[in-house]
Amino acid sequence: MKIRVDRDSVCMGDDVLPHEVEFEVPEDMTAEELCSFLQKDRYLPGLDTEWLLRHGGKTITSYNTETKELTNPNVYLKDLIHQGSRGNDFVWIYRRSY
């Protein structure tokens, strides 16, 4: 299954290259597995940062880069794709934790 993932920039230097990427992922991938997959390449930068995963304008999960805490880890991406009108597009929104 193909998905498109994009994310906010975290600083001016982070704006140099686009963050939208397309991946071929397993049909049964969960939000937790997506997060783990993306973190292998350090796709979600930041120390003590919270990232919100959104699909179709709705927040699906949040991930803290310091504590590795993830809400709603067992949500299947394919279920979101089939239920929503946004297709295979997922966006990570940057939110600094304090």
Rank of each mutant, 00 (worst) to 15 (best):
residue 1 M to Y: 08
residue 4 R to C: 04
residue 5 V to L: 12
residue 5 V to M: 04
residue 8 D to M: 11
residue 9 S to R: 13
residue 10 V to M: 14
residue 11 C to I: 10
residue 12 M to A: 15
residue 12 M to D: 14
residue 14 D to N: 05
residue 14 D to A: 02
residue 17 L to N: 08
residue 20 E to H: 11
residue 20 E to L: 12
residue 22 E to W: 03
residue 22 E to T: 08
residue 24 E to F: 10
residue 24 E to S: 05
residue 26 P to K: 14
residue 28 D to N: 15
residue 29 M to R: 00
residue 29 M to H: 06
residue 29 M to G: 01
residue 30 T to I: 14
residue 31 A to N: 08
residue 32 E to G: 08
residue 34 L to S: 03
residue 34 L to D: 00
residue 35 C to L: 12
residue 36 S to A: 02
residue 36 S to G: 02
residue 37 F to D: 03
residue 39 Q to L: 11
residue 41 D to N: 09
residue 41 D to L: 07
residue 47 L to E: 12
residue 48 D to L: 13
residue 49 T to G: 05
residue 49 T to F: 10
residue 50 E to A: 15
residue 51 W to G: 07
residue 53 L to Q: 07
residue 53 L to N: 06
residue 53 L to H: 01
residue 53 L to R: 01
residue 54 R to A: 15
residue 56 G to P: 10
residue 56 G to Y: 10
residue 57 G to M: 07
residue 59 T to A: 14
residue 60 I to Y: 13
residue 60 I to G: 13
residue 61 T to V: 15
residue 61 T to E: 02
residue 63 Y to A: 04
residue 65 T to W: 00
residue 65 T to S: 05
residue 66 E to D: 09
residue 67 T to M: 10
residue 68 K to R: 11
residue 70 L to D: 06
residue 71 T to F: 07
residue 71 T to Q: 12
residue 73 P to F: 06
residue 74 N to F: 09
residue 75 V to W: 05
residue 75 V to S: 05
residue 77 L to V: 04
residue 77 L to F: 03
residue 77 L to T: 00
residue 78 K to A: 07
residue 79 D to Q: 15
residue 79 D to I: 08
residue 79 D to F: 11
residue 83 Q to C: 12
residue 84 G to F: 03
residue 84 G to V: 06
residue 84 G to A: 02
residue 86 R to K: 03
residue 87 G to A: 01
residue 88 N to Q: 03
residue 91 V to A: 08
residue 91 V to Q: 09
residue 92 W to Y: 08
residue 95 R to H: 12
residue 96 R to A: 05
residue 98 Y to F: 12
residue 98 Y to R: 07
